[in-house]
Design a protein around this nucleic acid. Structure first.
Lengths: 243, 243
DNA sequence: AGAATATCTTGACGATCGTCCAAAATCTAT
DNA sequence: ATAGATTTTGGACGATCGTCAAGATATTCT
């Protein structure tokens, strides 16, 4: 058990919390108060787990509200009070579930990942021909820019933040890797449907598509109506030359 | 003449200031007090110009201090007082030369551009063979990541900010265009030295190299010793296939 | 030199930030 | 129902933010 600072309470790390620890040092890891006298052992295990689940479920709920706020305002202008206002709780509760702001945002980043990474997998596996895959990919690409621009600008924002804030780097790198894998799956599938293999590396492939996507996003948010069409055109020309 | 708010003074837009106006609406454009009774005309022109020059020279001086701070802390954590501390002035002077924080940072972004854009031109024009150009390009690329990582992470930070802050978009888009042109010049030169032409569009070429650079930067800042070597290797493999 | 202007310092302002805590409210187990 | 644990509230704290303006200082012009 860990006694924390001025407070005389005892603390424990929940399962979900340990996962959220990441690279951070001794600075406040989210912890929960428990009774100082521990129950012997077994029968409390189930109830114990339920409590942890409930705890991390609320963490995720709050993280979603935070994501909403972050996507709207960007990292630089997002405050804890603003986040709480988007949730159904008050600002104080955030420090009950998160040790500090960095902990919260790390949780956001991690949660965000799950929503992103499998985005194109359905299309990839369903397609039976290069044309079909191309069509589905282009369609989904445009749809993503059109409907989820706010969330994606947040991703680029957070990735940039990781260039300054060490605490974000591991999570960001992991997401980056996942996205790279996703792009690679699409390209590999596209290649194999033509009996080929991609002609560039995973890294280069991801760099290319990520760069194009990022540019399209900026143009789209700036009100450029042709941004999406140009992206589709570019990808349609490019994909067959690399896979 | 424009009378501003509660203050009874009159204001005028200096030359350098008009340039800095950009896209912003009626929100404070940097302006200078002048005597309310205007001098007739000619002989004061030279002195007038000198004053404007001195004014914008100081703006640039302060913008450089701001860039230093931004590169160190990132946009989200950079305050005006911190910027002033990096300069030889106190924080109040910033509102003498800039109408507000956004105005200052826009000025920074614009000033930053000039330092970036011609970076590879010397190498490009000097090289007499593909090998020579490749060698120089790779060398400069690695040198940039190694020596100017802080400034470049700022660029990615500010570009991300422009996804949220409309005021930055025009300047960011302009810089992006300049960088695209720069990459294109390198690739075109490389191609022509082999009697060819680039086989991909400007946009795709920039997306590719920008994506690779960004990734390398993140890895490098995370302490990955192989980041630069991997970038060089990737570029060395890629450039001949696209130009 | 003295007056006028330009530049800079200094301290204050209200707002808002992240954090913390005591108490209220809610839930759980007996 | 009651006690104890958990969860939530809401206000307070010190710090720091961008902005502003009055006055001190430096510069320029006559």
């Amino acid at each position: 058990m860990i006694s924390q600072g001025a407070s005389g309470h005892y603390w424990r790390r929940g399962d979900a919390v340990i996962r959220s620890l990441g690279v951070r040092k001794e600075t406040g890891v989210t912890q929960r108060k428990i009774e100082t006298t521990r129950r012997p052992n077994r029968p409390s295990d189930r109830i114990e787990r339920a409590r942890v689940d409930k705890f991390s479920a609320r963490r995720i709920e709050l993280a979603e509200a935070a994501l909403e706020t972050l996507a709207e305002l960007g990292y630089a202008r997002t405050s804890l009070r603003e986040i709480a206002q988007k949730s159904e709780f008050t600002h104080g509760v955030l420090h009950y579930y998160f040790s500090d702001k960095v902990d919260l945002i790390c949780c956001c980043v991690r949660h965000y990942k799950a929503k992103c990474v499998t985005r194109y997998d359905q299309i990839t596996s369903a397609a039976q021909s290069r044309d079909e895959l191309m069509k589905g990919f282009l369609e989904k690409l445009g749809e993503t820019v059109r409907d989820e621009a706010r969330m994606h600008r947040l991703w680029y924002d957070l990735r940039s933040q990781s260039l300054f804030e060490e605490a974000f780097r591991d999570d960001v790198a992991e997401i980056d890797k996942s996205l790279e894998d996703m792009v690679w799956r699409v390209a590999s599938r596209f290649a194999s449907l033509g009996g080929r293999q991609p002609v560039v590396s995973r890294g280069a492939l991801y760099a290319l598509f990520d760069g194009l996507f990022q540019r399209c996003l900026l143009r789209h948010l700036s009100g450029d109506r042709k941004a999406i069409a140009d992206l589709r055109e570019e990808v349609e020309r490019l994909l067959p030359t690399v896979a």
